[in-house]
Deep mutational scan, measured.
Amino acid sequence: TVKFKYKGEEKQVDISKIKKVWRVGKMISFTYDEGGGKTGRGAVSEKDAPKELLQ
Rank of each mutant, 00 (worst) to 15 (best):
T1K: 12
T1D: 05
T1H: 10
T1L: 14
V2D: 01
V2A: 02
K3H: 10
K3P: 02
K3E: 05
K3F: 13
K3C: 09
F4S: 03
F4G: 01
K5W: 15
K5F: 15
K5S: 11
K5H: 10
K5L: 13
Y6C: 09
K7Y: 08
K7L: 10
G8D: 06
G8L: 04
G8Y: 03
G8C: 05
E9Y: 10
E9L: 10
E9N: 08
E9F: 09
E9T: 12
E9A: 12
E10K: 07
E10D: 13
E10Q: 11
E10R: 07
E10N: 11
E10T: 11
K11Y: 11
K11D: 02
K11F: 09
K11I: 13
K11W: 05
Q12C: 13
Q12D: 07
Q12E: 15
Q12K: 08
Q12W: 11
V13T: 06
V13K: 01
V13N: 00
V13W: 02
D14F: 11
D14M: 13
D14P: 14
I15M: 11
I15G: 02
I15Q: 03
I15T: 06
I15P: 02
S16E: 10
S16T: 11
S16C: 09
S16G: 10
K17T: 11
K17A: 12
K17Y: 09
K17R: 12
K17S: 10
I18A: 01
I18M: 06
K19C: 12
K19A: 05
K19N: 09
K19P: 00
K20L: 11
V21W: 12
V21N: 02
W22A: 03
W22Q: 04
W22V: 04
W22N: 03
R23E: 02
R23C: 05
R23N: 04
V24Q: 13
V24F: 11
V24C: 15
G25D: 05
G25M: 03
G25W: 04
G25F: 04
G25E: 03
G25R: 05
G25I: 02
K26G: 13
K26W: 07
K26A: 13
K26T: 15
M27L: 13
M27E: 04
I28W: 04
I28S: 00
S29A: 15
S29K: 15
S29L: 15
S29Y: 15
S29E: 15
S29Q: 15
F30R: 00
F30M: 01
F30S: 00
F30K: 00
F30A: 00
T31Q: 06
T31F: 09
T31S: 07
T31P: 00
Y32P: 00
Y32S: 00
Y32I: 02
Y32Q: 00
D33C: 06
D33M: 06
D33H: 05
D33W: 07
D33N: 05
D33A: 06
D33S: 06
E34M: 15
E34T: 10
E34Y: 08
E34Q: 12
E34P: 03
G35Q: 05
G35S: 05
G35A: 06
G35E: 09
G35T: 06
G36K: 08
G36R: 07
G36M: 11
G36W: 08
G36T: 07
G37I: 03
G37Q: 04
G37F: 04
K38L: 09
K38F: 08
K38C: 07
K38W: 05
K38Q: 09
T39H: 07
T39Y: 11
G40T: 05
G40I: 05
G40A: 11
G40H: 06
G40S: 08
G40K: 08
R41D: 03
R41P: 01
R41F: 15
G42H: 02
G42W: 04
G42P: 00
G42T: 02
G42D: 01
G42Q: 02
A43G: 06
A43Y: 15
A43I: 15
A43V: 14
V44I: 15
V44P: 00
V44M: 10
S45L: 14
S45N: 15
E46A: 14
E46P: 07
K47D: 13
K47N: 10
K47T: 10
D48P: 01
D48M: 09
D48I: 09
D48K: 10
A49N: 01
P50V: 04
P50S: 05
P50M: 03
P50G: 04
K51I: 15
K51H: 11
K51A: 13
K51L: 15
K51P: 15
K51E: 12
E52R: 08
E52D: 08
E52W: 14
E52Q: 11
L53M: 08
L54E: 03
L54Y: 06
L54A: 06
L54I: 14
Q55M: 15
Q55S: 11
Q55E: 14
